[in-house]
Nucleic acid binder design. Structure first.
Length: 322
DNA sequence: GATATTTGACCCGG
DNA sequence: CCGGGTCAAATATC
C-alpha cells in the first residue's frame, strides 16, 4: 500500500513539474505582451509557482519513502462527538519571519483573517494567528502573528510571514468593457468588468489623488468617485476605470443589488484577548477597509480572465464613460 | 444564508 | 515529550 502511495506521489510530482513549466511559459508569454497588467500577471504566476513548489516538495517527501502520515492517523469517526478525530494533512510553517514590528495599531494596509489563538509560554498574552483574507480566493500566502506586548500592553508585536501575492484592493481597477451591440431591448446593458492592477496606483502617485468626480446615479443621487484610480480620457480605448469598491457603491445605489459586506473596522474594542483583524489603514467604514474579500461578494459573476459580468443601467454606463 | 471568529483537537519539529 | 502552529466544527455576526 505504501509503495503504491509513493508511486502515485511520484506521478503527481511529475505532473506538477509539467504544470509548473507551463505556468512559467505562460508567464513569460504574458510578460512579453507588455500589457499594463504585467505586474499582476507576474504576481499571480509567482503565487501559482510557489504553491506548486510547495505541493511538489510535500509530495516529494512522500514519494521518497516518507510514510504518508494518513495511514497511521486514526480515521475520522462519524460517531465521535464534535470536532475530534479529523483527518488532516497540513504542512508545517517553514517560512521565516521577514518582518517584525511593534505597533500600537493592527492596521497595516491588509485585511487579515484570524485562524487561531494560542496561549504562549512565558507570556501573559495570547498570540493571535492571522492569514491574508485573500488566501482562499487568490492563494495569498501572507500570514502574521499578533501578540500584545508584555511590557507595554498598548502595543502589539506583529510578526509577518510570507509576502502578499494578492492584489491589494486599492490597486484593483476594474476595466469596464463595452459589450457593443449587445444591449437588450429593455435598455439594460451587459458589460464585463476586469479586475486588474492599476498601473497608476501600483506605481508612483501620479497626482490627481485629491480631485474627485461626481457621477450621477440613475436614481438621481450622486456618488463621489475619487479620480485617484481613474485613467485619463486618453485611455478610454481600454475602457473606463474606477476602483471596485467605488463601483460597488455606484452600482449598489443604482441597482440596489450589491451590498458590500461591512468588515469590522479599526474601532474594534481594544481587548487584549479579542484581536480584531487588521484592516487597510484607511479610514473607517469606507475605502479598502470595507472592501470585500473577493469581487464575488460584490455579487459579480466571475468569468474567465478577471472578467466579471455586470448589468449596468445604460444611463449610468454613460456617465462612467464620459 | 454567507462570512468571520472562537476554540479544542491535531500535528510536527526540536 | 512539549510547545507552538494549524485545522476545522461550532458559534457569532451581519
Amino acid at each position: 500500500m505504501a509503495s503504491l502511495g509513493r508511486e502515485r506521489a511520484a506521478t503527481v510530482v511529475n505532473e506538477l513539474i509539467e504544470a509548473r513549466e507551463g505556468v512559467e511559459r505562460l508567464k513569460s508569454f504574458l510578460m512579453q505582451l507588455g500589457d499594463r497588467r504585467a505586474p499582476w500577471t507576474e504576481q499571480v504566476a509567482d503565487g501559482v509557482l510557489n504553491r506548486l513548489s510547495n505541493v511538489m516538495s510535500a509530495l516529494d517527501g512522500a514519494a521518497a519513502g516518507g510514510q504518508s502520515s494518513d495511514g497511521a492517523r486514526p480515521q475520522p469517526s462519524a460517531s465521535s462527538s464534535g470536532r475530534n478525530r479529523r483527518k488532516r494533512n497540513f504542512s508545517r510553517r517553514s517560512q521565516h519571519a521577514y518582518e517584525q514590528r511593534i505597533t500600537a495599531t493592527l492596521d497595516d494596509g491588509h485585511i487579515w483573517r484570524k485562524y487561531g489563538q494560542k496561549e504562549i509560554q512565558n507570556s501573559s498574552n495570547p498570540r493571535g494567528y492571522f492569514r491574508c483574507t485573500h488566501r482562499s480566493d487568490q492563494g495569498c500566502p501572507a500570514k502574521r502573528q499578533v501578540q500584545r506586548c508584555d511590557a507595554d500592553p498598548s502595543k502589539h508585536v506583529v510578526t509577518y510571514y510570507g509576502e502578499h501575492t494578492c492584489r491589494d484592493p486599492s490597486q484593483i481597477v476594474p476595466i469596464v468593457i463595452h459589450a457593443a451591440g449587445d444591449a437588450p431591448p429593455d435598455g439594460g446593458a451587459s458589460n464585463l468588468i476586469s479586475f486588474a492592477l492599476s498601473r497608476a496606483n501600483a506605481g508612483s502617485n501620479n497626482g490627481g489623488a485629491s480631485s474627485s468626480q461626481t457621477v450621477a446615479a440613475v436614481d438621481g443621487s450622486a456618488t463621489q468617485l475619487s479620480t485617484s484610480s481613474w485613467c485619463t480620457s486618453d485611455d478610454v480605448s481600454a475602457g473606463s476605470f474606477m476602483q471596485v469598491d467605488e463601483l460597488g457603491a455606484v452600482v449598489g445605489s443604482a441597482a440596489g443589488v450589491i451590498s458590500a459586506r461591512k468588515v469590522a473596522a479599526g474601532s474594534a474594542p481594544d481587548d487584549a484577548d479579542t484581536m480584531m483583524p487588521g484592516l487597510g489603514g484607511v479610514g473607517t467604514g469606507t475605502g479598502a477597509g470595507s472592501f470585500p474579500s473577493s469581487p464575488n461578494s460584490l455579487g459579480f459573476e466571475v468569468g474567465d480572465d478577471d472578467l466579471f459580468r455586470l448589468d449596468l443601467d445604460p444611463q449610468l454606463v454613460c456617465t462612467l464613460w464620459n
